[in-house]
């Protein structure tokens, strides 16, 4: 057997054995077959994967597929009656209903209220805390401290502050009627405010790490090249930070589409469905209305939206690689 030209380069694990044939030019036609070593490695790999594959199958893959299936059945009006197979009819019905549109609209509004504001604030704090000043570590700790609070704690704190009887506003002498969380115009912005506050720590940490990843020499080069502080921010900091910002936008978007705790604790989707975000809508449909068929369809929709956002995120992460030095 002769090895000529590039045919001599072998795959790392595939051996070229006696079975390889020579083509018309005398090149080895590669017919890699699995060596015994390779087979052992594959076997070992599956053995090690099996525990997580079993757990995932039971708790993730099966319920996931089952959920799709559930959406094909109409839930009976009274428990105990048989379910009725309706095929895609229920999907069509639910996904074109005004309640679903309202929920998507509320969720998108919520995302638009929380994500840009949260990122702008987090970035502003990160830029401030990036200065090499005495005592800055204290501020960094304060700015990032909200990561240590849970949604529940944040909701209780703000719920108390907004409380029309014992809250901050009546104490200040302001007593809006109806109370803020009961006001169709103000309930969603109020919940958004709580969410911004609660996620600010995370956004701050994200932006700070993004800033730290920018080499100091770039700022120094820009200073020597004649750029003032403002120009350096717009021409160097912001473009260099853009992958981090994209990342924060996608993460924030996914968080917004998964918001549940603060809605459940503060508004229960009301007033007038104005805070009925998708996740809460799914929950409410299942638990208050006991309509598991409809809830299944809604959660499939939520899955599709989150999947889309995740795909966008993966594209964005590829861009990060492009920026590497």
């Amino acid at each position: 057997m002769s090895f000529t030209g590039d045919s001599g380069t072998l795959g790392a694990l595939a051996d070229v054995g006696e079975a390889d044939a020579l083509d018309a030019q005398g090149h080895v036609r590669r017919r890699p077959h699995f060596s015994r070593r390779r087979l052992r490695e594959v076997g070992l790999a599956y053995l090690m994967l099996s525990p997580s594959m079993i757990i995932f199958s039971i708790f993730v893959f099966y319920p996931f597929l089952r959920n799709f299936y559930l959406g094909f059945f109409r839930t009976p009006p009274f428990p105990g009656l048989p379910k009725r197979y309706v095929g895609l009819e229920q999907y069509r019905e639910v996904l074109t209903s005004s309640a679903f549109f309202n929920s998507v609209k509320v969720t998108v509004q919520f995302a638009l209220m929380t994500v840009p504001v949260g990122i702008a604030l987090g970035l502003a704090l990160a830029v401030l805390a990036h200065q090499q000043l005495r005592g800055m570590a204290v501020y960094r700790t304060i700015f990032s401290s909200t990561v240590a609070t849970s949604v529940a704690v944040a909701s209780v704190i703000f719920g108390t502050l907004f409380n029309p009887v014992v809250g901050l506003l009546p104490w200040l002498g302001v007593n809006p009627r109806p109370p803020i969380l009961g006001n169709p115009d103000w309930a969603l912005p109020a919940v958004a405010l709580i969410t911004v506050w609660q996620t600010l720590g995370l956004t701050f940490i994200l932006m700070s790490s993004g800033l730290q990843a920018i080499p100091d020499e770039l700022h120094e080069a820009a200073r020597v090249d004649g750029a003032g502080a403002w120009a350096r921010f717009w021409k160097v900091t912001l473009p260099m930070l853009s992958p981090t910002i994209f990342f924060a936008v996608v993460i924030g978007g996914i968080f917004a589409f998964q918001t549940f705790g603060q809605i459940d604790l503060l508004t229960q989707g009301g007033p007038l469905e104005k805070t009925n975000v998708l996740t809460y809508f799914v929950y409410d449909t299942l638990h208050s209305k006991n309509d598991d068929g409809k809830a299944a369809v809604l959660s499939v929709a939520l899955f599709a939206i989150t999947l889309t956002l995740t795909l966008v995120q993966m594209r964005v992460l590829e861009r990060r690689v492009h920026y590497a030095r």
Partner: peptide, 21 residues
């Protein structure tokens, strides 16, 4: 005098090129 007003140019060890430009 600020660095930007000194009318000098600097070449860095890492070159410090702006990667996004």
């Amino acid at each position: 005098v600020e660095a930007k007003d000194r009318d000098i140019a600097m070449v860095f060890q890492t070159y410090a090129l702006y990667p996004h430009m």
